[in-house]
Design a protein around this nucleic acid. Sequence first.
RNA 1: GCCGGGGUGGCGGAACUGGUAGACGCACCGGACUCAAAAUCCGGCGUUGGCAACAACGUGCGGGUUCGAGCCCCGCCCCCGGCACCA
Length: 833
Amino acid sequence: MERYDPQAVEARWQKVWADEKAFETPNPADPAADDSPRAYVLEMLPYPSGDLHMGHVTNYTMGDVVSHFRRRTGHKVLHPMGYDSFGLPAENAAIKTGGKPAEVTARNIARIREQMLRMGWSIDWSRELSTSDPEYYKWTQWIFLRMFERGLAYKRGAAVKWCPQDQTVLANEQVVDGHCERCGTEVEARDLEQWFFRITDYADRLLDDMEKLEQWPERVLTMQRNWIGRSHGAEVQFSVVGGDEAIPVFTTRPDTLFGATFFVLAPEHPMINDLVRGTAAEAEVTDYVRRRGAESVADRMRDDRPKTGVDTGRRVLNPVTNEEIPIWVSDYVLVEYGTGAIMAVPAHDERDHTFALAFGLPIRQVVAATDGADVDVQAQAFTGTGDDAVLVNSGQFDGMTVADAKNAVPAWLAEDGRGEQKTAYRLRDWLVSRQRYWGAPIPIIDCPSCGLVPVPDADLPVRLPEIEDYAPKGRSPLAAAEEWRAVPCPSCGAAAQRETDTMDTFVDSSWYYLRYVNAHDDMEAFAKGDVDWWLPVGQYIGGVEHAILHLLYSRFFTKVLFDAGYLGFEEPFANLFTQGMIYKDGAKMSKSKGNVVAPDEIVNRYGADALRMYVLFMGPPEQDKEWSDSGVLGPSRFLDRLWKAVDRIAAETSGDPLPVAPSGAEGSALDLLRLTHHSIQRVTEDIDRRLQFNTAIAAAMELLNGIEKQRDALLGDPIGGQALRHAAGTLVCLVQPFAPHIAEELWEALGGSRLWETPWPVADPALLIADTFECVVQINGKLRERVQLGCGLPKDEVLAAVKALPKIAEQLEGRELVKEIVVPDKLVNIVVK
RNA sequence: GCCGGGGUGGCGGAACUGGUAGACGCACCGGACUCAAAAUCCGGCGUUGGCAACAACGUGCGGGUUCGAGCCCCGCCCCCGGCACCA
């Protein structure tokens, strides 16, 4: 056979797979379906920027290894691919170059698809989809309407985050430290009418169902938990002195209610104007509110800012002490959390304490430590809540522990409506409307008499109109398409206007995993029987950067669709694997830093198989990794050596591509058979149970090293030759998920065909057992000697054999024996004095 | 501050259930082949001492449990990620 030429080999097999539709998978209704177990292996779909990057290569190669493995262990595998193709980059590129977003997107998809094909991933291309395709977004709109019907999509005026660069509003999840997640511009606060999804209705289920996600990484669950931010506490009513109204507060410390010595409203609290109108403090309060409002979002988030505030002169009644306490306004209270108002307990809350000191407000201790700790609440807030923290100065609750009082106080308040147990969340409703062009139009019509009316399902999709100017102007570019906008109201027929905002692209990607199942069905988004057959996704793989946004939204969508009866499951992804990022020179690869290594260049030089192996071999898949230009040489050399070794063995032995292990092997032939079967076991475990691809590849490398070491000695011998052929065939089988092209070629050289659907090798238990082992001999826990002993030897015989060793005998000479430990077939430790 | 993850040779990493620390690979050093170089093949490669056999030390730091600790426990330090004036 010729020299290993990755380019030729890879092109050849990619064509075979395409011609034979090797990786297309039937749905249950298809006659080709049978009752073999199924596996849905999915990687997060890419944004088609045009260039495949190393993160994509790692992500999709991991999924591909799992797919191949499942296929060869008897599963029907669904392994699809698509493009998250709506979004700002294509739109911005179109604005810059004068083209159309749809054209830019089509070009980018064509380019990235070509690069993907060169990687040789075993994808069912017949299910390929693009979220910007009307065939797809028709159903995104359909889901929006289901949300609308259920009251889960609604429009309201609210203080929202606005990105002045991208000229659109953002979801809370898309604001990172006060800056736009996408472009890094500092966001502004604006009051706008916007569309929201009521994800907060699902906060409890999103949290509680995480218990079912046993196979999700802890760090992702933690991030979601933090994001949802559930706190149990109480809502307590404080009535305004000299008025009829009561102002509710949320507190997680109802046990400290007797210590509430003042009251604080957020500057945006809706009742402020009424409270101060006509009072002496009106001017000062209004001025304070205006100044806070002018501050940037990022400034308000700075954590070192001093406390500011102003006294309204008005008072509320502490509902348990009946004391009148002053109402202050301060921006340390956030309008969007809880009720936008707090009761301040300076003795037991650090923030309230700081505020009390700054403005000379009274501090009253209501919790004491019983462990003798010195507590001076005038100097410092005491925030202890343990079993040794008990209530004082709290009427009938004196002496009760904090934990008990947290329940007892709200229960007592509830008796006469002064308060009740309550749960608060950090999570806010998901703002989904965007004032940009390249997204799915929101399928709603605004009628002067009927209000917001859904577009009838039969009229979907609401297609994006062709427009001239995509440039953002602070309102949706769709507003300029007046002919498109003007429609009769579906309900009353009067002249009405279409909604002109488009949907956040995260809406598109919140359900794509369902669409793959019936990717080109134009009668429905997906068929319940089919999605229930394939989902939940058996293995989902993607970047940890989507831990909150995409994964939380997708879980929300799945629950909504489940509630509406379209799905038979509540969690979309049974197993989640988050891969680490690839760095170069200590930094994330990026064009601006000029440290991007293009996968294409590596493929041209070393082949896709070498690149596939290297990205997995670099380190544990979930960890961040550092790209090394010379590192790829390891796998590349391995494939070269593999080629030569298998080529020679194929030429000089005969039989099946993977003959049975010859019986009667001994010596180095037997050693090789054992190594082979240990390798099967290691690679199988590493792929199947541990998703630990780096060690699977290391095991394959060790097998090749073993084959090379024995090759010349065994080739002349009939049993040895068969052992070699068995080892070589096995190695090709084990390498196939990682390097599928060369594996097919070598399998063919061994006389086989279609390795991708050849059953995965199974380790022979008899060959996993050795008859001797290297016994480690320790004295006082220190390694002193090693000796080959027979397996299964009784303890006393092992000890006798070990003590007979000259070196050990010498060291035991004249010392008192304290203890002897024998770990069967492993080690001996002799403890002496 | 709270929550989660991590810290092992020159480098990436391995050690899965407490049992030989450093698998596999990169880099480097020496040798073979070559006029020479590249490629390839063979050998070496934690630190210190020693010609060597070998010995001592060694998994962020300090303690503990154990016959035995990279792994378990207690107390710290540092790095990464999430949340954070969230009442």
